[in-house]
Amino acid sequence: MDTEGPLKLSAEQVQFYQDNGYLVINRLINFASLYTYKKRFNQISNGLVPRGLMTIVKERRLMDSSKKPEDYLNKLQDFLFDDVLSTYAEDPRLLDVVSQFVGSDITAMHSMLINKPPGTGEHPPHQDLYYFPFRPADKIVAAWTAIDEVTYENGCLYVIAGTHKDANLHEHDYTSITSKMYHGIVDATLAPENKRIHLEMSPGDTVFFHPYLIHGSRPNVSKNYRKSISCHFANSNVEFVDVTGTVQERIAKETEVESKRRGFDFTFQEIWKYRSKEVRKTKPMSKY
Protein backbone atom coordinates (compact mmCIF):
# COMPACT_ATOMS: atom_id res chain seq x y z
CA MET A 1 0.00 0.00 0.00
CA ASP A 2 1.16 3.52 -0.81
CA THR A 3 1.83 5.30 2.49
CA GLU A 4 2.55 8.75 1.10
CA GLY A 5 -0.06 11.50 1.26
CA PRO A 6 -3.74 11.42 2.24
CA LEU A 7 -5.53 8.11 1.88
CA LYS A 8 -8.49 8.40 -0.47
CA LEU A 9 -10.97 5.55 -0.66
CA SER A 10 -11.99 4.31 -4.08
CA ALA A 11 -15.60 4.45 -5.22
CA GLU A 12 -15.67 0.66 -4.94
CA GLN A 13 -14.51 0.75 -1.32
CA VAL A 14 -17.12 3.34 -0.38
CA GLN A 15 -19.83 1.31 -2.10
CA PHE A 16 -18.70 -1.87 -0.31
CA TYR A 17 -19.01 -0.09 3.05
CA GLN A 18 -22.45 1.26 2.16
CA ASP A 19 -23.64 -2.18 1.05
CA ASN A 20 -22.10 -4.29 3.79
CA GLY A 21 -21.55 -1.97 6.76
CA TYR A 22 -17.83 -2.69 7.04
CA LEU A 23 -14.57 -2.27 5.14
CA VAL A 24 -11.14 -3.82 5.73
CA ILE A 25 -8.00 -1.93 4.70
CA ASN A 26 -4.84 -4.00 4.84
CA ARG A 27 -1.63 -2.79 6.51
CA LEU A 28 -3.07 0.62 7.37
CA ILE A 29 -1.12 0.96 10.64
CA ASN A 30 2.65 0.44 10.50
CA PHE A 31 4.66 -2.09 12.50
CA ALA A 32 6.51 0.54 14.54
CA SER A 33 3.21 1.91 15.87
CA LEU A 34 1.89 -1.57 16.66
CA TYR A 35 5.07 -2.39 18.59
CA THR A 36 4.70 0.85 20.55
CA TYR A 37 1.08 0.03 21.49
CA LYS A 38 2.01 -3.48 22.63
CA LYS A 39 4.94 -2.16 24.70
CA ARG A 40 2.68 0.43 26.34
CA PHE A 41 0.12 -2.26 27.19
CA ASN A 42 2.81 -4.29 28.93
CA GLN A 43 4.08 -1.23 30.83
CA ILE A 44 0.60 -0.36 32.09
CA SER A 45 -0.50 -3.91 32.85
CA ASN A 46 2.65 -4.53 34.91
CA GLY A 47 2.35 -1.23 36.78
CA LEU A 48 5.54 0.24 35.32
CA VAL A 49 3.79 3.47 34.29
CA PRO A 50 0.62 5.10 35.70
CA ARG A 51 -2.62 4.13 33.99
CA GLY A 52 -3.93 7.69 34.25
CA LEU A 53 -7.60 7.94 33.27
CA MET A 54 -7.71 4.48 31.75
CA THR A 55 -9.92 1.68 33.04
CA ILE A 56 -8.35 -1.78 33.29
CA VAL A 57 -10.84 -4.56 32.54
CA LYS A 58 -10.00 -8.02 33.86
CA GLU A 59 -11.21 -11.46 32.80
CA ARG A 60 -11.88 -12.46 36.41
CA ARG A 61 -12.44 -16.15 35.81
CA LEU A 62 -8.87 -16.39 34.48
CA MET A 63 -7.26 -14.68 37.47
CA ASP A 64 -6.96 -17.65 39.82
CA SER A 65 -4.96 -19.73 37.37
CA SER A 66 -2.84 -16.87 36.01
CA LYS A 67 0.66 -15.83 37.02
CA LYS A 68 0.97 -12.54 35.14
CA PRO A 69 -1.44 -9.72 34.26
CA GLU A 70 -1.28 -10.41 30.52
CA ASP A 71 -2.99 -13.75 31.21
CA TYR A 72 -6.14 -12.15 32.65
CA LEU A 73 -6.30 -8.50 31.53
CA ASN A 74 -8.97 -8.17 28.88
CA LYS A 75 -8.54 -4.55 27.86
CA LEU A 76 -7.40 -1.02 28.59
CA GLN A 77 -10.29 1.35 28.05
CA ASP A 78 -10.37 5.12 27.49
CA PHE A 79 -6.77 5.74 26.41
CA LEU A 80 -7.43 9.02 24.59
CA PHE A 81 -5.41 11.02 27.12
CA ASP A 82 -2.47 8.62 27.29
CA ASP A 83 0.56 10.12 25.55
CA VAL A 84 1.39 6.90 23.71
CA LEU A 85 -1.86 5.08 22.94
CA SER A 86 -3.64 8.29 21.93
CA THR A 87 -1.45 8.40 18.82
CA TYR A 88 -3.62 5.61 17.39
CA ALA A 89 -6.76 7.78 17.52
CA GLU A 90 -4.77 10.65 16.01
CA ASP A 91 -3.08 8.68 13.23
CA PRO A 92 -3.41 10.87 10.09
CA ARG A 93 -4.11 8.04 7.65
CA LEU A 94 -6.65 6.45 9.98
CA LEU A 95 -8.40 9.83 10.23
CA ASP A 96 -8.23 10.23 6.45
CA VAL A 97 -10.46 7.16 6.18
CA VAL A 98 -12.71 8.14 9.10
CA SER A 99 -13.31 11.57 7.57
CA GLN A 100 -14.76 9.95 4.46
CA PHE A 101 -17.42 8.30 6.63
CA VAL A 102 -18.27 10.95 9.23
CA GLY A 103 -16.97 14.26 7.86
CA SER A 104 -13.94 16.48 8.44
CA ASP A 105 -14.58 17.47 12.07
CA ILE A 106 -13.83 14.34 14.09
CA THR A 107 -14.13 13.49 17.78
CA ALA A 108 -12.80 10.24 19.22
CA MET A 109 -15.50 8.87 21.52
CA HIS A 110 -14.49 5.45 22.83
CA SER A 111 -11.09 3.77 22.83
CA MET A 112 -9.84 0.31 23.78
CA LEU A 113 -6.70 -1.78 23.57
CA ILE A 114 -8.02 -5.34 23.73
CA ASN A 115 -5.78 -8.18 24.90
CA LYS A 116 -8.04 -11.29 24.70
CA PRO A 117 -5.81 -13.87 26.43
CA PRO A 118 -6.18 -17.62 25.87
CA GLY A 119 -9.37 -18.92 27.47
CA THR A 120 -11.35 -15.72 26.88
CA GLY A 121 -14.94 -16.37 25.85
CA GLU A 122 -16.85 -14.94 22.93
CA HIS A 123 -18.14 -11.39 22.74
CA PRO A 124 -21.80 -12.02 21.84
CA PRO A 125 -23.44 -10.46 18.78
CA HIS A 126 -24.21 -6.79 19.45
CA GLN A 127 -24.53 -3.35 17.89
CA ASP A 128 -22.18 -0.64 19.07
CA LEU A 129 -24.86 2.04 18.82
CA TYR A 130 -26.56 0.37 21.78
CA TYR A 131 -23.86 1.93 24.00
CA PHE A 132 -23.94 5.42 22.48
CA PRO A 133 -26.32 8.28 23.40
CA PHE A 134 -25.45 10.37 20.34
CA ARG A 135 -26.79 10.54 16.80
CA PRO A 136 -27.03 10.37 13.83
CA ALA A 137 -25.70 6.85 13.44
CA ASP A 138 -24.37 7.54 9.95
CA LYS A 139 -21.92 10.02 11.47
CA ILE A 140 -20.32 7.37 13.69
CA VAL A 141 -17.76 4.75 12.66
CA ALA A 142 -15.54 2.25 14.46
CA ALA A 143 -11.92 1.52 13.56
CA TRP A 144 -10.47 -1.80 14.81
CA THR A 145 -6.84 -2.71 14.09
CA ALA A 146 -5.11 -6.06 14.56
CA ILE A 147 -1.93 -5.78 16.64
CA ASP A 148 -1.29 -9.52 16.60
CA GLU A 149 -2.21 -12.02 13.92
CA VAL A 150 -5.98 -12.46 14.28
CA THR A 151 -7.35 -15.91 13.45
CA TYR A 152 -10.51 -17.95 13.78
CA GLU A 153 -8.92 -19.87 16.65
CA ASN A 154 -7.73 -16.89 18.70
CA GLY A 155 -10.98 -14.95 18.58
CA CYS A 156 -11.37 -12.97 15.36
CA LEU A 157 -14.24 -10.59 14.80
CA TYR A 158 -17.24 -11.66 12.78
CA VAL A 159 -19.84 -9.47 11.09
CA ILE A 160 -23.33 -10.00 9.71
CA ALA A 161 -22.99 -8.07 6.47
CA GLY A 162 -25.73 -5.61 5.57
CA THR A 163 -27.45 -5.58 8.98
CA HIS A 164 -26.76 -1.86 9.33
CA LYS A 165 -29.29 -1.11 6.59
CA ASP A 166 -32.30 -1.81 8.82
CA ALA A 167 -31.31 1.12 11.07
CA ASN A 168 -32.98 -0.80 13.88
CA LEU A 169 -31.49 -1.01 17.36
CA HIS A 170 -32.33 -4.43 18.78
CA GLU A 171 -32.96 -5.44 22.39
CA HIS A 172 -29.74 -6.33 24.25
CA ASP A 173 -29.17 -8.11 27.56
CA TYR A 174 -26.72 -10.48 29.23
CA THR A 175 -26.64 -13.59 27.07
CA SER A 176 -23.62 -15.90 26.84
CA ILE A 177 -21.31 -14.16 29.34
CA THR A 178 -21.78 -12.24 32.56
CA SER A 179 -18.97 -9.68 32.44
CA LYS A 180 -20.15 -6.16 33.20
CA MET A 181 -21.75 -4.39 30.23
CA TYR A 182 -21.06 -7.19 27.76
CA HIS A 183 -24.63 -7.19 26.55
CA GLY A 184 -25.63 -9.17 23.48
CA ILE A 185 -28.62 -9.17 21.15
CA VAL A 186 -31.42 -11.17 22.75
CA ASP A 187 -32.79 -12.55 19.47
CA ALA A 188 -30.14 -15.10 18.46
CA THR A 189 -31.75 -15.56 15.03
CA LEU A 190 -30.35 -12.16 14.03
CA ALA A 191 -26.79 -13.54 14.00
CA PRO A 192 -26.98 -17.12 12.69
CA GLU A 193 -23.72 -19.03 12.35
CA ASN A 194 -24.14 -19.42 8.58
CA LYS A 195 -24.33 -15.63 8.12
CA ARG A 196 -21.22 -14.79 10.12
CA ILE A 197 -18.28 -13.50 8.08
CA HIS A 198 -15.12 -14.12 10.08
CA LEU A 199 -12.44 -11.46 9.68
CA GLU A 200 -9.02 -13.06 9.96
CA MET A 201 -6.51 -10.21 9.85
CA SER A 202 -2.77 -9.59 9.82
CA PRO A 203 -1.04 -7.01 12.07
CA GLY A 204 -1.86 -3.49 10.89
CA ASP A 205 -5.03 -4.52 9.02
CA THR A 206 -7.94 -2.30 10.03
CA VAL A 207 -11.67 -2.83 9.75
CA PHE A 208 -14.08 0.09 9.77
CA PHE A 209 -17.71 -0.63 10.59
CA HIS A 210 -21.08 1.06 11.03
CA PRO A 211 -22.58 1.33 14.56
CA TYR A 212 -25.79 -0.48 13.51
CA LEU A 213 -23.82 -3.45 12.14
CA ILE A 214 -24.36 -6.68 14.07
CA HIS A 215 -20.99 -8.16 14.99
CA GLY A 216 -19.14 -10.04 17.72
CA SER A 217 -15.98 -12.04 18.28
CA ARG A 218 -15.14 -15.68 18.77
CA PRO A 219 -13.64 -17.18 21.93
CA ASN A 220 -9.87 -17.53 22.09
CA VAL A 221 -9.30 -21.29 22.03
CA SER A 222 -5.64 -20.96 20.99
CA LYS A 223 -2.54 -20.64 23.17
CA ASN A 224 -1.79 -17.15 21.89
CA TYR A 225 -2.88 -13.64 22.90
CA ARG A 226 -4.99 -11.68 20.45
CA LYS A 227 -4.27 -8.00 20.84
CA SER A 228 -6.08 -5.30 18.90
CA ILE A 229 -6.66 -1.57 19.28
CA SER A 230 -9.90 0.20 18.54
CA CYS A 231 -11.57 3.60 18.57
CA HIS A 232 -15.06 4.83 17.77
CA PHE A 233 -15.21 8.17 16.02
CA ALA A 234 -18.08 10.58 15.46
CA ASN A 235 -18.58 13.84 13.66
CA SER A 236 -17.92 16.56 16.21
CA ASN A 237 -21.41 17.99 15.61
CA VAL A 238 -23.40 14.89 16.62
CA GLU A 239 -26.24 15.53 19.06
CA PHE A 240 -26.66 13.80 22.41
CA VAL A 241 -30.06 12.20 22.94
CA ASP A 242 -32.17 11.00 25.87
CA VAL A 243 -32.42 7.20 25.83
CA THR A 244 -35.10 6.96 28.52
CA GLY A 245 -37.81 4.49 27.50
CA THR A 246 -35.68 2.93 24.74
CA VAL A 247 -33.77 -0.35 24.48
CA GLN A 248 -30.72 1.62 25.67
CA GLU A 249 -32.20 2.55 29.05
CA ARG A 250 -30.73 -0.49 30.83
CA ILE A 251 -27.16 0.10 29.67
CA ALA A 252 -27.52 3.81 30.49
CA LYS A 253 -28.51 3.03 34.09
CA GLU A 254 -25.79 0.42 34.43
CA THR A 255 -23.19 2.89 33.17
CA GLU A 256 -24.36 5.58 35.59
CA VAL A 257 -24.23 3.13 38.53
CA GLU A 258 -20.67 2.17 37.61
CA SER A 259 -19.76 5.86 37.39
CA LYS A 260 -21.11 6.48 40.91
CA ARG A 261 -19.20 3.45 42.21
CA ARG A 262 -16.04 5.21 41.05
CA GLY A 263 -16.98 8.44 42.82
CA PHE A 264 -18.59 10.38 39.98
CA ASP A 265 -22.16 11.54 39.55
CA PHE A 266 -22.60 11.93 35.80
CA THR A 267 -25.49 11.23 33.47
CA PHE A 268 -25.08 8.75 30.62
CA GLN A 269 -24.68 11.63 28.20
CA GLU A 270 -22.15 13.46 30.40
CA ILE A 271 -20.03 10.33 30.76
CA TRP A 272 -19.64 10.15 26.98
CA LYS A 273 -18.91 13.85 26.67
CA TYR A 274 -16.15 13.74 29.27
CA ARG A 275 -14.44 10.67 27.85
CA SER A 276 -14.28 12.08 24.29
CA LYS A 277 -11.54 14.09 22.57
CA GLU A 278 -11.57 16.12 19.37
CA VAL A 279 -8.88 14.75 17.06
CA ARG A 280 -9.38 16.60 13.77
CA LYS A 281 -10.94 19.93 12.91
CA THR A 282 -11.55 21.50 9.51
CA LYS A 283 -8.70 23.83 8.70
CA PRO A 284 -9.71 27.43 7.92
CA MET A 285 -9.44 28.46 4.28
CA SER A 286 -6.18 30.14 3.28
CA LYS A 287 -6.36 33.80 2.26
CA TYR A 288 -4.15 33.14 -0.72
Rank of each mutant, 00 (worst) to 15 (best):
I251M: 05
R262D: 11
E270T: 12
I271C: 10
Y225R: 04
T267L: 11
V221S: 13
V221I: 15
R262H: 11
T282C: 02
G216P: 00
I229S: 01
E258C: 12
P219A: 12
N224R: 15
T246D: 04
V279T: 10
H215M: 05
R218N: 01
Q248C: 00
Q269R: 13
E258A: 15
R250M: 10
R280S: 08
W272P: 07
S236L: 10
I229G: 02
T246H: 03
K260R: 14
R275G: 13
K223I: 14
Q248F: 00
R250E: 12
G216N: 01
Y274K: 11
F268M: 03
N235I: 12
S259H: 11
E270S: 04
G245P: 09
V221T: 15
W272M: 14
S259I: 06
C231H: 02
H232P: 01
N237K: 13
K277W: 07
F233S: 08
N220I: 00
Q269W: 13
P219S: 09
S230R: 00
E278G: 05
R218W: 00
G245W: 03
G263W: 06
T282G: 01
F240L: 03
K260F: 13
T282A: 06
V238F: 09
N235A: 15
E278W: 02
R250P: 07
T267H: 12
F266P: 08
G263D: 09
